[in-house]
Design a protein around this nucleic acid. Structure first.
Length: 721
RNA sequence: GCGUCCUUAGCUCAGUGGUAGAGCGUUACUUUGACAUAGUAAAGGCCGCAGGUUCGAUCCCUGCAGGACGCACCA
């Protein structure tokens, strides 16, 4: 044994050993007798990384936490399944490929056409997938590769079509004309959750509208405005009656305006009066719906003005805006304007396009429509009882059937559900699951397979990527087929993921599993934080503060990276990391290596019966106590404390005190005492290696193979006890 | 507007109703046979501020200040 642990060469070798053993697969564990046939189950799905690129340090944190869970469960003798996969991440992946295509070849997706473009995306996704798999292996993830899934593969497609059909038949999926978030750049809708708001300084204009003054930050939408809205309780405008008509001089000449009284108006904002543009604003749309008002489209789907804009027709809104302002000015309709108004602009988080609300016919999942679960295993919802998706999603968590850790996120979850609106699930992008609906002569057919006969045309839209992700806990286990995996491993034991996708994903899994299975998808949700740099900033390429997990693993070993992501961070809190911290844990790996080296160098098989002293027994009892403590922490998902306790015991007690005190006895003339010292040393080391293994699998596995009598035995399936 | 979190050593962060912890950094000494990616010793903190509860508060409660975030609104 060298004085340094050569992680660079040994890690890959060790991973290959694990893979060859087959122990990542729970069935093989049972077959080879390392797991009991009737063992309890532990199952966890990997939050599938997006095939948009490579893993980042946040993914490394996720992999580490889940690997600790899986390895601990496996060593405790549970039948353990950690199921891997990747996500096609529809919008994100398509956006990435579109941008590459444009940069490298100056082409758009329309130049290639649907089929050829999809080929490109698939090629990109495949490459990205391969990189991700390589990276996962580098980090030591003990997933069962034989069950690997992809959100867009054949089996998952069947699950998606089945889910869609059942929800369609159940009346929960409907097609409707509603206001949606339209991304003119990517030419698709996106859901409310996929928006990001950017602050932007825009002039805010006060325009004369007959006897009123109305405020707007978007003069380019004002052409069709013919309703003027005020709060029914606003005394300033008491003289105007709901429905009253007046003649108003407006941008393209005189119009007839109608007074509308609605409580949506904030009396304190601006003048307390506004005109509405129902086609291009969600609030306005709702007012229009309530009062049954006309809606007129002003801006087309490319961001260009329509004939309603008069002479500005055909012009892009960005170009037209200053000209429109000029015209308002020349007509004397601008009362004043505020130059320093801060406006929130919605952009598509994944694709980057600036959102223009539009009314469009889309597919939605109704969250308030009533239905009954024929067989409910959800606490608080009885079989056959009327409920809604909202109520069902709440019940699963409220009843504590699903526990969210840390608990404070339960509040966030409820709050989100309270504000939830119908979920727009159709996208006009090409990469993704095609909606399983076909049309012919005004007829509509929804089915798992295409309808027979000629002339049917499939809906051209694809599904929101989270629709397929929502099925993940059971689509990966073979659903809708009745598989052994499904009956054995669902609901899964725990879902581990970042708090930033609580709504996107966690909530939608509860929705899907609840409706389709009448059951919860998992018993526990453990949320980790975002990984940030030492100044608490998000890691990004533009800041050049990103730590590449592969690069630092190469430099300091994957074990060191893993430990540095675990120790010193609490559940749900952001994780701060720096290269210094990683280096510190690399030193710990070296410490373990050298202490083990010492033990090996000083060990011979005992020829006499060891005579343990009282102190020896005390030390061995100490290790047992440590094991109890670490087990308790791990059972409570308190990885920070479990790892911390091990770190300190190994270094401060075992290395600094125990080894030092044993040194003279290891050279003792008294054979029984010498044997005792050796036994204590080896036993303590072995127990600690076992406990450290889930945290630092590589170095502990390598040392294990070097210990006496351990040839060909794998630490990863040693009994924890 | 509603809600959540954070404020602890120079930096980054854990933690607990009973005299404060880690990593990195700093200072001094030490190459003695596991390990200098180390060892020994040390410096360094009114645990944001002000009240309250308590025998006792860094921890529980209230208020304030600063920072971060989520949701809603943003005409």
């Amino acid at each position: 044994m060298d004085t340094r642990y050569d992680y660079g060469n040994l890690e890959d070798k060790t991973y290959a050993k694990w893979e060859k053993s087959g122990y990542f697969n729970p069935d093989i564990c049972v077959r080879k007798g390392v797991t009991a046939k009737n063992a309890k189950k532990f199952s966890i799905v990997l939050p599938p990384p997006n095939v948009t690129g490579t893993l980042h340090i946040g993914s490394a944190a996720m992999l580490t936490i889940e690997d600790i869970m899986a390895r601990y469960a496996r060593m405790r003798g549970l039948k353990t399944l950690w199921l891997p996969g990747t996500d096609h991440a529809a919008i994100a992946t398509q956006a990435k490929v579109e941008s590459l295509l444009f940069k490298q070849e100056g082409k758009t997706r329309y130049d290639l056409g649907r089929e050829a473009f999809l080929k490109r995306v698939e090629e990109f996704a495949k490459n990205s997938h391969d990189t991700i798999v390589r990276q996962m292996k580098k980090m030591g993830t003990s997933v069962d590769w034989s069950r690997e899934a992809y959100t867009l593969d054949e089996k998952r497609s069947l699950a998606v079509r089945t889910a869609f059909k059942r929800m369609y038949d159940g009346g929960l999926i409907y097609k409707g004309s509603r206001i949606v978030n339209w991304d003119p750049k990517m030419q698709t809708t996106v859901s409310d959750d996929e928006l990001e708001y950017l602050e932007e300084k825009t002039p805010f204009y006060y325009l004369k509208f007959g006897p009123f003054v109305i405020g707007t930050a978007r003069p380019e939408t004002k052409f069709g405005d013919k309703y003027v809205v005020m709060h029914p309780a606003d005394k300033r405008y008491a003289e105007y009656r709901d429905g009253e008509k007046l003649k108003v001089e407006w941008i393209n000449g005189p119009i007839t305006a109608t007074i509308v009284k609605d409580k949506a108006v904030d009396m304190k904002f601006g003048t307390g009066v506004m005109t509405i543009t129902p086609w291009h604003d969600a609030t306005d749309f709702e007012i229009a719906e309530r009062h049954n008002l006309d809606k007129e489209q002003i801006i087309d789907y490319n961001g260009k003005l329509l004939p309603a804009a008069g002479e500005f027709s055909g012009m892009h809104i960005n170009k037209a805006r200053p000209l429109i302002v000029e015209k308002f000015k020349s007509l004397g309709l601008i009362e004043k304007f505020d130059e320093n108004y801060v406006h929130n602009v919605a952009v598509n988080q994944r694709g980057g396009g600036r959102i223009e609300p539009q009314i469009k016919e889309q597919w939605f999942v109704s969250v308030n429509r009533e239905f009954a679960l024929p067989k409910s295993k959800i606490k608080g919802i009885k079989s056959g009882e009327k409920t809604t998706l909202k109520k069902m999603m709440k019940a699963a968590v409220k009843s504590n059937q699903i526990a969210i850790l840390p608990k404070r996120f339960e509040k966030t979850y409820f709050h989100w559900i309270d504000n939830l609106r119908d979920w727009c699930i159709s996208r006009q992008i090409w990469y993704g699951h095609r909606i399983p609906v076909w049309y012919k002569n005004g007829e509509t057919y929804c089915g798992i397979n295409p309808p027979k006969g000629p002339g049917w045309i499939q809906d051209s839209d694809t599904l929101d990527t989270w629709f397929s992700s929502g099925l993940w806990t059971f689509s990966t286990l073979g659903w809708p087929r009745e598989t052994k995996d499904f009956s054995e491993f669902h609901p899964t034991s725990v879902l581990e993921t970042g708090y930033d996708i609580l709504f996107f994903w966690v909530a939608r899994m509860i929705l899907m599993s609840g409706y389709l299975l009448g059951d919860i998808p998992f018993h526990k949700v453990y949320l980790h934080g975002l990984v940030r740099d030492e100044q608490g900033r998000k890691m990004s390429k533009s800041l050049d503060n990103a730590i590449d997990p592969l690069e630092v693993s190469q430099k300091y070993g994957a074990d060191a990276v893993r430990l540095s992501l675990i120790i010193g961070s609490a559940p749900g809190n952001d994780i701060k990391i720096s290269e210094d911290k990683i280096r510190g844990y690399r030193n710990f790996a070296t410490k373990i290596w050298n202490a083990s080296r010492f033990a090996v160098l000083n060990f011979q098989p005992a020829k006499v019966k060891p005579k343990l002293t009282a102190q020896d027994k005390k030390r061995l009892a100490e290790v047992e106590a440590l094991k109890k403590k670490v087990s308790r922490h791990l059972d409570e998902f308190d990885f920070n404390r479990a790892g911390g306790a091990l770190y300190h015991y190994f270094w401060d007690v075992f290395a600094d005190k125990v080894i030092e005190s044993l040194k003279p006895r290891l050279n003792s003339e008294n054979a029984a005492d010498r044997a005792a010292a050796q036994e204590v040393l080896m036993k303590m080391l072995k127990e600690q290696l076992k406990m450290l293994h889930p945290f630092m699998p590589f170095v502990t596995e390598e040392i294990w193979s070097l210990l006496p009598e351990n040839k060909n035995k794998l630490l990863m399936v040693e009994k924890w006890r």
